[in-house]
Design a protein around this nucleic acid. Sequence first.
RNA 1: GGCCGGGUAGCCAAGUGGUAAGGCAAGGGCCUGCAAAGCCCCUACGCGCGGGUUCGAUUCCCGCCCCGGCCUCCA
Length: 455
Amino acid sequence: MRLYNTLTRRVEELRPREPGRVAMYVCGPTVQGAPHLGHARPALVPDVLRRYLQWRGWDVLHVRNVTDVDDKIIARAEAEGRHPAAVAEEYTRVYDEQMARLGVLPPHIAPRATGHIIEMIALITRLVELGSAYEVGGDVFFRVRSFPRYGRLSGRDVDELRAGERVEPDERKADPLDFALWKAAKPGEPSWPSPWGPGRPGWHVECSAMAAKYLGEGFDVHGGGQDLVFPHHENEIAQSEAATGRPFARHWLHNALLSMSGAKMSKSVGNIVALGEALDRWGPNVLRQLYLSAHYRSPLDLHPGRLAEASAAVGRWEAYVRAAEGLDARSDPSLRAGAVEAFTAAMDDDLGTPRAHAVLFELVTAGHEHLQAGREPQAAAARDTFLELAGVLGYAFGAASDGARVGPLVAELLRLREDARARRDFTTADSIRDRLSEAGVVVEDTPAGPRWHVG
RNA sequence: GGCCGGGUAGCCAAGUGGUAAGGCAAGGGCCUGCAAAGCCCCUACGCGCGGGUUCGAUUCCCGCCCCGGCCUCCA
């Protein structure tokens, strides 16, 4: 398995600390509101990596944190007259629920920042002892220039950073580059006791503390959105490595961002699409197809028509699964072997999901050809291989349970329609089909009789 | 200004030092009572622009242009 490593700017072999066992930490949500389409990509990319590695027989330990204390959560709580923890709790649930709908496997551990204040205080204390951090009036800052490798991940030179250019720096900092590890409590804000007085943690320190707690030093993969490379991940490295003297994470995985018709997705532009609404409208497979149709390191631009394309693609897949339903599974092993080889080659090469999609399309085309030629074992093998590989990417093709309750009714109507067709009463036959279509039931005539599905 | 991505057909998107996967859309055909689904055919003399290296470059090198991101606790 080869993966691009932001740290080295190269595609490198993924060599886990323990052979066959990958420890992965991914930056999760700040639970300040409902997730939007942009939040889905950094959840889906690690999900696909994890599913693929597991399919290849590796063990994966997946940790994704929840940032449940932060300025925006506090601001929202204040505006709504609620306790910040209530806001965080609500949106943690919303996030988990929507990730489940998207088909993202839940992480094995989902630590919350507020549950790890003690670990963070211990880390900060250590940094203060070592001289890497200093306290000023209840705040504690990390001394960036004390960490020689600062800037390595993001390719920045400390002397060229324009800290303070866009935002007035806190004048108590010894250096404008320094960042907060601990923030003294302000009235009305949540706070915890600490050696520096009541306060709350800075953002970056939670990931350092929680990754260390659950994955230890030098774990394998650390992931997140590209926008987190600087300063968040740079700061995580500085804090962690300054404290331990050891490498923090071996492989840094960053997904490119999403744009909407060429524009950044942001509240001020007003082009945010809520993940929940997109799921309602398109369903998990279509969204997943959309995200995986581009390589994870390429920017993904959404515009009208893009979702429709993904929907058409998934529709083609679903149509084959339906067409090959019920075929005996006496398989043609050569068919699976070839597809698996192409699929594996694509995925091993830095998670080449677009090429993996091509393998799926080719399986579907081959399957239809076999089906049309009456070669059922091969058609069944194409279906089974398709379902297996699509499953590795997280696609789910369940039975059409939606229609179960109306099945007998539809069957009766189709029987009436067949009678009409036998009489060449096409007006009645088409009327029945049209009415079913209006109700969401698609009818397709085949040599073996009519088939129907919801959709 | 610095750093990081990206610029391949109408749209999306792989890929390679030797002549461009796959999908969507469009067009033609087959099948069908008509559809739907499916199958077949068709679609980039060209891979942002200009140089260079080479027998040969879209793929390597140099310069430039355009788009996006980060440089502020944005996924």
